[in-house]
Computed example of a mutant assay.
Amino acid sequence: MMYWDGSGWVWMALMPVLWIALIGLVVWAVVRLTQHSAGRHDGMGSWLPQKETPEEILDRRFASGEIDADTYSEARKRLAAHRPRPQ
Rank of each mutant, 00 (worst) to 15 (best):
W28M: 13
G43L: 02
S73W: 00
R83V: 01
I20V: 15
R78G: 00
P84Q: 02
R83N: 07
A63Y: 07
W19N: 09
R61W: 12
S64D: 12
M12T: 13
G39R: 05
E56Y: 03
K77M: 04
M2W: 10
W9L: 12
K77Q: 05
W47S: 11
G8W: 04
G43S: 08
I67R: 05
W11H: 09
A63L: 07
E74N: 14
L14T: 08
L79E: 05
E74T: 14
G6R: 02
M44R: 15
G43Q: 00
V10G: 12
W28S: 12
V27M: 01
A69S: 15
D70G: 01
I23L: 06
A29W: 06
H36W: 11
D42I: 10
M15R: 14
R61G: 05
L33Q: 13
R85H: 07
D5Y: 10
A13P: 07
W11R: 06
G8A: 12
S37Q: 10
R85M: 10
W11M: 10
A81Q: 14
W28V: 12
A38V: 02
D5F: 08
H82R: 14
R32T: 01
M1D: 08
M12H: 13
A69I: 03
V17A: 06
M15S: 07
G6K: 07
W11E: 08
L18F: 13
R76P: 02
A63S: 13
P49R: 13
E66N: 05
V30Y: 06
D70V: 03
M44A: 15
P86W: 04
V26R: 04
W19Q: 07
I57S: 10
L79C: 00
A38I: 09
W47F: 12
P84W: 09
R83M: 11
E55R: 14
W19E: 09
E52L: 13
A21Q: 01
D59R: 15
L48H: 03
R83S: 14
A80N: 10
R76N: 04
M12E: 11
L48Y: 01
I20L: 15
L48V: 15
W9K: 08
V17K: 01
P49Q: 05
V10K: 15
H41Q: 15
Y72W: 14
Q35W: 01
A81G: 11
G39W: 00
